[in-house]
Write a protein that binds this DNA or RNA. Structure first.
Length: 291
DNA sequence: CCATGTCAAGGTCAC
DNA sequence: GTGACCTTGACATGG
């Protein structure tokens, strides 16, 4: 069971998600920013190894304007060595990696332009993971998308888009149950049609479900992961007290976490904490798990 | 230096 | 209709 956190490490001084405005785009700025981001990513991974946090989500801001038409620079080749070096570090230490592109990736949109933009965005994510020579346990997770007043139709649209995706994307893609539109059950429906693995999000499941108990839910999600995909990936969070429903916690709710572990006892999966204070809570979670 | 309006991109819901 | 929210603040300008 690996545990980790998303994108940002607050104990280190560097950021791997540095970006800049489109209006100030220059190739020089792009190169400088990517270099900064990759250097920081290395430092974060070293920190993670030292602290035995073996699961990490690489930020989607790693490559600013990664799929924007303004970006004509061959960054993939220019930073080839860096990607290889980072990938080797990840592999040597048996770390797990995920990426989670922004909300703009919507594969079931009725707008063709949105779908094309989404594919472009997914492509550079896949290229990064490929350049690192990571196996297929490194996943790119997305939400199913919009409902557009007809969920069955929206699901069909997802299937149609998915079937035509380049293999480079398809083989790394996973869907996550969300808190408003697509429940675990909806995701399972999609899995039946196209075999896509499901990343289980406990907090979203608490917000939107079909009464599956936690143990059952995790087991169902687990059944969608083939051998080459690795063990089930999960996102973990809990409700921030006093805030509106669906708001992620600022720091880990220890009792909630312990209860979740208890509920899912004997199941094997990796846990990505989606909690605001990042590695701080991950270290607490790590401690709870080993005690 | 600091304050703050805005940032490539979508969709949903609370208000 | 607007704005917060999502996985996440931080860039960049004007004072």
């Amino acid at each position: 069971m690996k545990i980790g956190y998303a994108c940002i490490n607050n104990s280190l001084k560097c950021r791997a998600n540095k970006t800049f405005r489109l209006s100030s785009y220059t190739e020089e700025k792009l190169v400088e920013t990517i270099k900064n981001n990759l250097d920081c990513l290395k430092k974060i991974l070293e920190y993670n190894l030292e602290h035995n946090l073996m699961f990490f989500r690489i930020t989607s801001e790693l490559i600013p304007f990664g799929s924007h038409e303004i970006n004509k620079f061959d960054w993939l080749n220019y930073f080839k060595k860096d990607f290889e070096e980072i990938g080797a570090f990840i592999k040597n230490h048996d770390m797990r990696i995920s990426m989670h592109p922004d909300q703009f990736v919507v594969l079931n949109s009725p707008k063709e332009k949105v779908i094309q933009n989404s594919i472009g965005e997914l492509l550079w994510h896949a290229q990064v993971l490929d350049a690192m020579n990571l196996d297929l346990t490194a996943k790119i997770q997305i939400h199913v998308g919009g409902v557009y007043n007809d969920k069955d139709k929206a699901i069909e649209k997802f299937v149609e888009t998915y079937k035509n995706l380049p293999l480079q994307i398809k083989r790394r893609l996973a869907i996550e149950n969300d808190d408003k539109s697509y429940s675990l059950k909806d995701c399972l429906k999609l899995n039946k049609k196209i075999g896509i693995p499901i990343i289980f999000d406990n907090f979203h499941h608490e917000c939107l479900n079909n009464k599956e108990p936690m143990f059952e839910a995790v087991k169902l999600a687990q059944s969608t992961w083939k051998k080459q995909d690795g063990v089930l990936m999960t996102d973990y969070s809990s409700q921030q007290p006093g805030e509106r429903k669906g708001k992620h916690a600022d720091s880990i709710d220890i009792n909630h976490f312990k209860k979740y572990l208890e509920q899912t006892k004997d199941l094997e999966f990796d846990i990505m904490l989606e909690i605001k204070d990042k590695e701080k809570s991950a270290l607490i979670a790590k401690q709870i798990m080993s005690s």
